[in-house]
Every structure is written in structure tokens, then in C-alpha cells.
């Protein structure tokens, strides 16, 4: 397994290189994407635009620009934003906890809700609960997150004059209550959206497993219902479950951009969105690279976890 893992890790730089090249080139070849034009303003002379090109290094050949940027990133120097000249590394570090907490909490909500209701739905097949869970899963997958988020802002506001606190990130160890109040609405929405897929898959897989011979044998031996489900059936549902959790992570990761925007959470998603609109190339390039790395690493972890979940899986 370790050889497989090392091989996958060895591919990481190749994938990152390809992603970075594609991003780098696309940002520069698409029409109306010149940040110097945006920065210079509407009646700038070509000389002023050229001066900004030189200042930002955009006058160099694209290959030279790429090598310069990549070597800076490799040294840990992410550069400055084009707009505002802020240190990108410092901004990323400042915003990372807000985004990471949102994604992590959403994933936890999504797994807890998805797995538990998926199991309950399978065990209580064709019951009222089963229908409610299946219906909720359809709603969860079909209603956009941002709409649910807005409802979650409006309804408590109208009924209780309540609003989730805004005004900056507060770490859980600094003010746990405020932290929870900030993150409960977006985590619930993103998590429940992600839970829908997990719930459906968990139900289907669990139904299949519950009908298998070894489960029938366990029951015949007199084991309790929950003992059979948790101790015997559950483990065999984990492999597909881990796959779909990996997919949910990517969906939540993407959804967090909108959630951050709606909830005014000053995280990496908002940073990416604003920078993309302003053609702030170094920020967009780095955040695409970061996102690609995170997704690849999560997929690698998912792949490796198969061997732990199912000893029959062998990596060569």
C-alpha cells in the first residue's frame, strides 16, 4: 500500500504542474483579462498601461512569467495582490481558519446526518421515516444552498430578531459561543446539502447488505438488531460511503465559496471570488493550485482508506 501511496504522491507535482500551467495560460489568453487595463482606469494612455505591465512583470514572455511565479511559490513567496498590494501569504493564512472550519463542520454535519438517517431509512424501510428521509434527500439535492442560506437568515430574523453574528472570524477557543453562532447556519446548509447524497447511498448500500447471507446468519445466531447493523452490516457499507464522502468534500468545498459570500465570512472562497473578478492573477493562480492540491490529497486519502476499511483490497 505504501508503494501505491508513494506512487500517487509522486504524481502530485505532475498534476499540480498541469493545473498551474492551464490556469496560468487561461488567465492570460482570455479576452478582456488584462489587469493592467483595469488598474490603469478608463482614460489611461497605452504608456500608463505599459508601465503597469512592467510593474507587474506582465510584459515578460509568458514562460518567464510562469517560471518566476512558480519559483517564488516554491520558496514560499506568494507575492502581493495586484489590487491593494497585500501580502498573499499573510492573507491566505489569515483567511484559512475561517474557511477550514466551515468546510470541516459542514463535512461533519453531512456525515453524521447522512449516515445516521441513511441507516435508519434502510432499517425502517417503507416506513414514514423512510419516506421523509428520501423526500428530504431529494429536496436537499435539488434546492440551491444559497437559497436555503437566505431562508436561514430571514426566518430567525423575522421570528426572533436573531441574526448570526458578523464582523470577522472568532476562533472557537477565543469565544466558543460566538464561533458556533457564526458557523451553525452555513455548516447546517452545506452539510445537509452534502448529506442528501450520502443518505441515499447509505440507504441503498445498507439495504443490500442487510439482505446478505452473513447478516441473516448473525441474526439467526441471536445478535441484537443494532449489534448486527453497527457491528456487522455497517462495515461493509463503508467503502462506497467513503467514496461519496470524498465527493461531498469537493462539493462542500465549492459550495463554501457561495456560503462565505452570503454570510460575509472573510475566508478563502471570498478571496478567490473577489480576486477572480478583479483579475488578480497571483491570488487566483495560487488558490487554484491550493484547491487542486487539497482535492488530490483528499482523493488519495479516500483511496488509501479502502485498504483499511476492506482488508481484501490490495494496492500494487
Amino acid at each position: 500500500m505504501w508503494r501505491y501511496a508513494l506512487r500517487r504522491i509522486a504524481f502530485l507535482p505532475v498534476i499540480i504542474f498541469v493545473v498551474s500551467v492551464i490556469t496560468f495560460v487561461l488567465l492570460r489568453v482570455l479576452p478582456d483579462q488584462d489587469p493592467a487595463v483595469l488598474m490603469a482606469g478608463q482614460n489611461a494612455t497605452p504608456q500608463q498601461v505599459q508601465a503597469i505591465h512592467e510593474l507587474l512583470g506582465l510584459d515578460k514572455p509568458i514562460v518567464v512569467q510562469y517560471i518566476d511565479w512558480m519559483s517564488d511559490v516554491w520558496r514560499g513567496d506568494l507575492g502581493e495582490t495586484y489590487f491593494g498590494r497585500r501580502d498573499i501569504g499573510a492573507e491566505v493564512l489569515r483567511r484559512f481558519p475561517a474557511s477550514a472550519e466551515l468546510v470541516l463542520l459542514s463535512l461533519i454535519v453531512s456525515v453524521i446526518v447522512g449516515v445516521s438517517f441513511g441507516v435508519l431509512s434502510a432499517v425502517m424501510r417503507n416506513s414514514s421515516l423512510d419516506y421523509i428521509v428520501r423526500l428530504s434527500a431529494v429536496f436537499g439535492q435539488s434546492i440551491p444552498d444559497f437559497f436555503l442560506l437566505i431562508l436561514l437568515i430571514i426566518i430567525p430574523s423575522i421570528i426572533w430578531n436573531y441574526a448570526a453574528p458578523i464582523g470577522g472570524y472568532v476562533a472557537p477557543w477565543d469565544d466558543p459561543l460566538r464561533n458556533i453562532r457564526i458557523y451553525v447556519p452555513p455548516s447546517l446548509i452545506l452539510g445537509i446539502g452534502g448529506a442528501a447524497g450520502i443518505m441515499r447511498l447509505q440507504r441503498t448500500t445498507m439495504l443490500e447488505v442487510l439482505g446478505s447471507d452473513y447478516v441473516r446468519t448473525a441474526r439467526a445466531k441471536g445478535l441484537g438488531a443494532w449489534n448486527v447493523i453497527i457491528g456487522h452490516a455497517m462495515r461493509n457499507t463503508l467503502a462506497p460511503l467513503v467514496t461519496v464522502i470524498g465527493t461531498s468534500f469537493t462539493v462542500i468545498f465549492a459550495g463554501s465559496v457561495i456560503a462565505e459570500r452570503v454570510m460575509s465570512i472573510d475566508g478563502l472562497g471570498v478571496f478567490f471570488l473577489d480576486s477572480a473578478i478583479q483579475r488578480d492573477f497571483p491570488v487566483v493562480q495560487f488558490l487554484v493550485l491550493y484547491t487542486a492540491t487539497v482535492v488530490i490529497v483528499v482523493n488519495l486519502i479516500v483511496d488509501l482508506s479502502y485498504a483499511i476499511i476492506d482488508p481484501r483490497v490490495k494496492y500494487r
Binding site: I150, P156, S157, Y162, A163, I166
Partner: peptide, 15 residues
């Protein structure tokens, strides 16, 4: 207080 979304701002005002 940073609130880019109007709905969120109205909720914050109500609170």
C-alpha cells in the same frame, strides 16, 4: 461590520 449581502445586513440590523 462587513455584510456584503443585503439580506444578511437587514437581519443584522434587526438584531
Amino acid at each position: 461590520i462587513f455584510a456584503s449581502d443585503d439580506t444578511l445586513a437587514q437581519a443584522a440590523f434587526s438584531a
